[in-house]
Computed example of a mutant assay.
Amino acid sequence: MIRSALKPALQATTLLVASSLALAACSKKAPAELPPPPAPTTTTEAPPPATPQGPAPGSQADFAQQMMGKDTIYFDTDKFNVDADDQAALAQQAQWLAKYPAKKATIEGHADERGTREYNLALGERRANAAKNYLVSLGVDAGRLTTVSYGKERPVALGSDEASWAKNRRAVTVTID
């Protein structure tokens, strides 16, 4: 009886030893000699393309950056004439627009808070048209320019004093994408 109880245990042990030996026989052996290391490669990879710094050329941000504040011209009280300072700013705008002939622009006319809404809308329109006409005289195609008057509706300075009013009497050129 002891013999029959030992027989399955002996068979299991024998099977385990045989399996271990079989697996050990299948293991890889280290080669006698290692292969040579790979030869260094000399590829002439192009450096990654440089990421542009600053605004995209021809964009409104580029226009504003290039103008350095000269995208806006200022007027005296109740006036819409283009003076010497305004002419220099508009000349710089015309040069930029000549560089990007497919670009269109809107000239926004503004007025200070004094006067009626109707009066200031008309004054803003005259200011925008004066800036447009000067740009056209410098060679900018009139078809590329539109005007809009905001009158006193979009002030940049909210004070009720001469300094604030002077900042609000303006024409601003904005490029259209």
Rank of each mutant, 00 (worst) to 15 (best):
S137M: 08
S160H: 15
E118I: 07
D161T: 06
W165P: 03
H110I: 05
P35F: 07
Q87F: 05
Y119V: 03
T72G: 09
E162I: 11
P57W: 07
A94K: 00
M67R: 06
A88E: 05
A9P: 06
D76P: 12
G54V: 10
T175M: 06
P8H: 04
N129P: 08
N168A: 02
N120I: 01
F80S: 03
F75K: 00
L10T: 15
E45G: 15
Q95V: 09
K7A: 14
V172A: 14
A12P: 01
P47F: 12
D85Q: 11
Y134V: 03
R144L: 07
T13Y: 08
E162F: 10
N120S: 07
V140P: 01
K99M: 13
P101T: 05
K29C: 14
Q11M: 10
P36A: 13
Y150K: 04
G115D: 08
S4V: 09
A18V: 15
K7Q: 14
L90T: 00
A88R: 04
A128D: 02
P38F: 03
N81G: 12
A30I: 11
N81W: 10
K79Y: 10
Q60H: 10
A131V: 02
V156T: 11
A18F: 04
F80L: 07
L90K: 01
G115W: 00
K167S: 00
S27F: 12
P35W: 07
L10G: 13
A130R: 00
A56F: 15
Q93A: 05
A128V: 04
D85Y: 09
Q66L: 08
K152Q: 08
R170E: 09
H110N: 09
K167N: 06
A18Y: 07
P31Q: 11
M1R: 04
S164R: 01
D141F: 03
Q95E: 07
G151N: 00
S59K: 05
T147G: 02
S20E: 15
G109L: 01
L135M: 06
N133L: 08
T43M: 14
Y100Q: 09
A30T: 12
Q95P: 10
M1N: 01
R126A: 05
R170C: 07
P40E: 14
D161S: 07
W165A: 02
L21S: 11
T14H: 08
P40R: 08
P52V: 15
T146S: 13
L10H: 14
P155A: 10
T43N: 15
V148T: 08
I176E: 10
P36N: 13
